[in-house]
């Protein structure tokens, strides 16, 4: 059964909210990694450099998740308004077919309703395109996260006594990137499903 677009948009907003929380966790991981790298000294210079990228990546994901969240919420509200306009338009069309004594008096309200429906429909189409583009952008961040995770593992392997701790951090980055990827792919799947 097709899902109402306002349900989809709200669900996408929820997924992106989760992604944002994961990214906040990633930012914390970056801080821990940096502290550890400082303590470890010269053996972890490479890892320390990577922590800046992790931090930057986390900030980008948080910013983008918040943006997509806003777009999704706006889209959900527009979709509810469109649903109401559609409902009213359907009822008006039914009434129009009745050939009522004063049916003509509804003309202005009908025109306003149809215009509003058209306007909302266009806004919704634009909003969906914007969402698609933003989710695409999110994929790029995940690819970057994967590269960082691989580099972290490599750097961790040459960190001597700190190897085990840095490996935990590298694993953490990989796990978080996977979680965020999961949320983004759920969001995309929601967007690609059939809508009413």
């Amino acid at each position: 059964m097709p899902t109402p677009i306002f349900v989809t948009a709200a669900s996408i907003a929820a997924e992106l909210h989760q992604a944002m929380l994961e990214a906040k966790g990633l930012a914390l991981t970056a801080k821990n990694a940096r502290a550890l790298a400082v303590r470890a000294g010269s053996k972890t210079v490479g890892f320390k450099a990577i922590t800046h990228f992790i931090d930057e990546l986390a900030s980008d994901i948080i910013r983008q998740s918040q943006y997509i969240n806003g777009v999704s919420e706006g889209l959900s509200q527009q979709a509810v308004s469109l649903w109401r306009a559609n409902t009213a338009a359907d009822k008006f069309q039914w009434i129009e077919r009745q050939q009522l004594a004063h049916g003509e008096s509804l003309r202005n309200a009908m025109r306003t309703c149809y215009d509003e429906r058209e306007h909302l429909s266009q806004m919704l189409t634009r909003g969906i395109r914007e969402l698609e583009a933003q989710l695409e952008e999110g994929d790029k961040h995940i690819r970057t996260a994967n590269l960082i995770a691989t580099s972290s593992k490599v750097e961790a392997s040459s960190a001597g006594d700190f190897r085990a701790q840095l490996e935990v951090i590298a694993a953490n980055i990989t796990a978080t990137a996977n979680q965020i990827r999961q949320h983004l792919s759920t969001a995309r799947r929601l967007l690609n499903q059939k809508h009413t």
């Binding site: 009434i95 004594a101 003509e104 008096s105």
Partner: peptide, 17 residues
């Protein structure tokens, strides 16, 4: 009830009234 109600009402009075 909205549609049947509006339909019934418009038999007696235009919307602007």
């Amino acid at each position: 009830l909205f549609a049947p109600m509006l339909s019934a009402v418009l038999k007696f009075v235009p919307t602007d009234q």
